[in-house]
Design a protein around this nucleic acid. Structure first.
Lengths: 332, 332
DNA sequence: GTCGAATTCGGTAACGTTATGGCGGTCAGC
DNA sequence: GCTGACCGCCATAACGTTACCGAATTCGAC
């Protein structure tokens, strides 16, 4: 309801002066600024978002392109603290966060293109990067400020925030070795995902340091559902030389593994040692001894907004990249 | 980049005609419409959101005001499928969904007031209603289209979508009775929450039907963290006359109860029968026999958008209210 | 006393869109 | 052949904001 024109009329000022006064323009008398601000507060003035956006070209909104699992909501557990972190940080920075959900049917590149054409956001957050992700080049070419959650293997500098999956997998493997495990199983997610490559690399590094040859049968791919994790680990336990240590990909993989253990009457922390990634504290809530790499996803969300904001403010500035570490919390 | 003016210049038409042609205006020659649409497609035209919003007053965005738990992300598990359902349904209806996160420090009424003044959304989704929620009256008075997730005890008609917690608690209690339980424990969340009142009512109805007097010591309040749930249930199990059946409030309460059981070496489904609400399928992933009331939160999210949309289209139409049922899935 | 600079404000135009009134031209009806 | 209706299109204005240029006043400096 309330707009600049009303305030201007009430104070017998021009719309221009009111506009300037509200942003502490140096060309306005301090006493006038005070009068304008008082009147604005009294009538409950809030700037019209669209008028400003139309004029300045800036919208004060950020859009996060998030793939949604329509089948299995549990697999995206870590997305909730991520959303929380992003929304709160965005609000604090004066932006509103819009969530653009994509289904598995949606083409990721087309989704980004739509956002580009609609130009309704000042910046974009893209997630789940794949190898040689075409979206990175597209956004760089168009000059659209963005930040990626995750990395890709392109020879271009671009801003990203990622979890140091290599180091986490390395530490998890080392941890299991320290307890005495030698046959250590590793869960990986989608093969083409960069995350899995990183985890495999960290696992390999630890194994090489200990001089243990890698047994491909101990490495499980596609562990992104409870069922696949349970089935895979059950087969592993049934083999002639089962594993004594397991590094889980996430909470879901952990639940599957526990399921397989329970079926055979085995106890985690005694028969098999388990280390997992956890962002929701789910592992801590389970009645089982499990080592946890806690990854602060809300912090990742805040970092994403922070990097994106500095990108918007200074598009030609240095490209920021952030690598978030996990914090290990032993089983007991 | 591309706007109406460019298309108009290219085709030697007026901006008005181009605008009308793109929405199949009856005053435009069909052949002209075809020419305009072809040109629009060729240059990749997408209407400028803010220009349109400024002119029409409609923004094509919906805002969901969501409280975020900054301490304990797991307690909000069910919010993820809710967000998924809302974002996808909003996108399909031609709206974009903006998420306005509030912290426990934020005043809920002030948050809504801000949204009202900013008038950057065509409709609002409010959640976690309290008794005599002042936001309902505020939004009705201001004529802002909205829909509530949850109910309040006001004598005003307003659009809402809610889970039938009364019926779910009733069925859960009945179910436990059918198995043979008589001392049935009930978990409740925040006392002032309408959800808890409903659950208590359903529980009481089932107990009354069976002629079992209600033992207040079996009713646990404030079960919104794993720790409180575990502590409460542990004390219950330690009492001289422990409960043999438990109706959990949600996934988190379930995890706490399982924790307490595990500590005492008791087995769910044998020593104590458990029924819980579940929207994430977490209970199904646990290696324990647990009866589940599945509540389709993604469906709730879609319904919310649906109701809100019809509210926006026809603000004076009948007030829609939706009560979503749970689907019971027995332990085995 | 004059001039230039600084200070403080106002008017105008523009961002991209749509609503509105109007303007030629065609065509049927009498 | 004239009137009126209608068709297809255009020009203008407006939504609320800000950028830009200009205007009026004051003040110090020479």
């Amino acid at each position: 309801m309330a707009n600049l024109k009303q305030i201007a009329a009430e104070l017998s000022l021009s719309v221009t002066t009111v506009s300037r006064a509200l942003k502490d323009g140096p060309e306005v008398l301090p006493s006038t600024i005070a009068r304008v601000k008082e009147a604005a507060k009294r009538v409950g003035y809030l700037p019209n978002h669209h008028g400003r956006a139309l004029k300045t070209g800036r919208t004060q909104t950020l859009t996060a392109v998030l793939p949604m699992e329509t089948r299995d909501h549990l697999s995206d557990l870590l997305k909730l603290p991520l959303i929380e972190g992003m929304t709160l940080a965005a609000r604090q920075a004066g932006y509103s966060l819009s969530i653009y959900s994509t289904t598995p049917d949606d083409d990721p590149v087309e989704s980004v293109q739509r956002q580009l054409q609609a130009r309704s956001a000042d910046g974009l957050i893209i997630t789940r990067l794949v190898s040689a992700d075409p979206r990175v080049k597209l956004l760089l070419d168009r000059g659209m400020p963005f930040v990626a959650f995750g990395r890709t293997d392109l020879d271009i500098a671009y801003p990203y925030v990622d979890v140091d999956n290599e180091q986490i997998a390395y530490e998890a493997t080392r941890r299991l070795m320290d307890i005495g495990c030698r046959r250590i199983a590793l869960q990986l997610l989608v093969p083409e995902d960069q995350t899995s490559a990183m985890r495999l690399s960290g696992y390999g590094r630890a194994m090489a340091e200990a001089g243990i040859p890698i047994d491909q049968s101990l490495i499980g791919h596609g562990m992104f559902t409870m069922e696949s994790s349970a089935g895979w680990f059950d087969r592993l336990l049934a083999s002639s030389d089962p594993s004594t240590g397991l590094a889980c990909a996430n909470e879901l993989g952990l639940l599957g593994a526990l399921h397989a253990l329970g079926k055979r009457g085995l106890t985690p922390g005694r028969d098999v040692h388990i280390v997992t990634r956890d962002s929701t504290r789910l592992a801590r809530f389970l009645p089982a001894k499990i080592g946890v790499h806690f990854v602060d996803m809300a912090g990742v969300g805040r970092k994403l907004i922070e990097v994106l904001e500095s990108r918007i403010i200074n598009p030609l500035g240095p490209v920021e990249t952030v690598l978030v570490q996990g914090r290990f919390e032993p089983a007991e």
